[in-house]
Design a protein around this nucleic acid. Sequence first.
DNA 1: AGTCTATTGACTTACTTTGACCATTGATAT
DNA 2: ATATCAATGGTCAAAGTAAGTCAATAGACT
Lengths: 168, 168
Amino acid sequence: MRLSDTIEQFIKDMMQQEQQAEIDLKRNELAEYFHCAPSQINYVLSTRFTPDHGYMTSSQRGGGGYIRIVRIVRSGSEQLRYLLNERIGESITAGEVQVLCSQLAERGVITDKDAQLMAAAVSPAALSVPVPEAVKNVMRARIARSMLLCVLQQAGKREKAEVKPDEV
Amino acid sequence: MRLSDTIEQFIKDMMQQEQQAEIDLKRNELAEYFHCAPSQINYVLSTRFTPDHGYMTSSQRGGGGYIRIVRIVRSGSEQLRYLLNERIGESITAGEVQVLCSQLAERGVITDKDAQLMAAAVSPAALSVPVPEAVKNVMRARIARSMLLCVLQQAGKREKAEVKPDEV
DNA sequence: AGTCTATTGACTTACTTTGACCATTGATAT
DNA sequence: ATATCAATGGTCAAAGTAAGTCAATAGACT
């Protein structure tokens, strides 16, 4: 088995074992544990813990630094996943985003307010900068995806909070 | 946990506990208490108690000197207007937007979720397109303004519905 | 052989902590 | 009044810590 696979499994086991959808790692410690270059950890993250794989990562440098991996809960709305994986492609218009968000609101996946907020983020006014329209639409796709991913991740947190209310 | 974070929390707890929007500290005493260099206190102030974080600081040197930290108090709509008209200019970074949104959430102007949503809209991932960083920051300013305007309008609607006249 | 995946290491960027030196203030002595 | 001094706080750059990037190299699998 390749090292990358081992590290991937190690991290997943860790999350499994701790019943956590979120885990903090020390890049250097992990690297030392597996006797590899620290950047190997980044490789594993970027090839196996991406949003497409159902994970999001963030990190902090400097003293007390860390790498945080969050698993996006798999039970999110079907519609949301469809939008993320298929509907929104490389490029999308402001009008399309607006329609999609309204639909999400109608189905109760997000609030009306958030639908408006997301539409505002990709509105023509928001991107009024001398950049070709084609590029703007690529940005709209990324902005929309980034926000929907955020919603999906929050859905996971809420679920957990509701399922395990005491335990605090 | 980092020393900086510990000191930050210590100061906030102190203000919380005294129910005060204002507190006076002795730099040297604090530093001694935490066994650190006095300038560490300045570091904490300049990275965690800035106007963006909702605080202002002043100080006096010499015998009987002190450091004063004041929590800025503004109503939700005042805060939104301040951000729209003064704070967000032509250009802003992703990090700054993130701090400002957290602050709005902390003050209950928006939810934590919406703060994350807005931060996601201007995150590096959302704008990962081959465009100069300077241009991206101009776009961030416009996107943020567009979203905050949206929040302000929504707040206005609710106010009307709940019959809360001026305050704006 | 050629291509895709994995590994490594040199270099870069980000955040924190410390310390040497500077500036200001109030009290005290002349 | 003025000079001096002790008690504060401020600044800034260096050192320390930890993660990110990227391109060269190495393996693995057609």
